[in-house]
Design a protein around this nucleic acid. Structure first.
Length: 228
DNA sequence: AACCAGGACGTGA
DNA sequence: TCACGTCATGGT
């Protein structure tokens, strides 16, 4: 019946719970170990638990723009060592030092500016959950980053669309080539129950699946889902 | 050694 | 609106 939902169940069965969003502060990750790709917490939807963990997810969402997670993790660990994953500390960090710390995540000139602007906004929230429109009003926060922040930092059930999702579901014929971000988002939100866990897992599962079959060209080669 | 990554913004047509 | 160019490091 509902192909959007049945694909979710198939992906969940194949890959299991993904445990997004990863937190370097989560036990299991040793910040001194290089190349540590950890911090996932499959089956535990209580994260992030603290204000600083919420902040960490937000900064990670900015750093991962068009960037692989291993690079982001290096940058986050650098920030963590400097105690700069606390908004009040990060605010006081010089722009030059911030650029240096996040360098492994690339685009450090743009991203340092984005992080500074977001940090000021985050502090002004005083713990309140931001509105999507507020996030989109910040320079450097586009629709995907805004939705990632809402879904994984603030536990707001809003669906995240990324480049992988577009490639994958275009190939499946479930979205159109000319649909924009909000059009595609609506396809998912109207075909799924508004459930935080489903929204969190589905996006993560799409990324996991698409990394395997939609990274290299031709996109979709050997994707078993194209036959179903 | 190219190619790609869990995007967003600025520009010109 | 929209199709491009730009931003940058590190993994495969």
């Amino acid at each position: 019946m509902n192909r959007i939902f049945s694909i979710y169940r198939i992906l969940l069965k194949r890959y299991g719970k993904q445990g997004w969003w990863p937190l370097i502060s989560h036990k299991g990750c040793n910040p001194t170990k290089t190349g540590c790709i950890s911090g996932y917490h499959p089956g535990d939807y209580s994260f992030p638990k603290t204000g600083s963990e919420i902040f960490e997810v937000c900064i990670g969402a900015i750093l991962t723009q068009n960037t692989g997670w291993p690079n982001v993790e290096k940058a986050l660990i650098n920030l963590k060592k400097r105690r700069a994953l606390e908004p009040e500390h990060l605010k006081r960090l010089s722009d030059g030092k911030l650029r240096e710390l996040i360098k492994p995540a690339g685009y450090y000139n743009q991203k340092s500016k984005k992080i500074k602007l977001f940090t000021a906004f985050f502090i002004s929230l005083n713990g309140r959950t931001p509105l999507r429109e507020e996030l989109l009003g910040i320079w450097g926060i586009g629709p995907e980053t805004a939705d990632s922040i809402l879904l994984y930092a603030y536990k707001v059930p809003t669906f995240v669309i990324d480049a992988y999702t577009q490639r994958f579901f275009l190939k499946l014929g479930l979205i159109g080539k000319k649909m924009d971000y909000d059009d595609i988002k609506q396809v998912f939100e109207t075909n799924l129950e508004k459930d935080l866990i489903v929204f969190q897992e589905y996006h993560a599962l799409i990324v996991e699946h698409a990394k395997r079959y939609y990274s290299k060209k031709p996109h979709g080669k050997n994707d078993f889902l194209l036959d179903i």
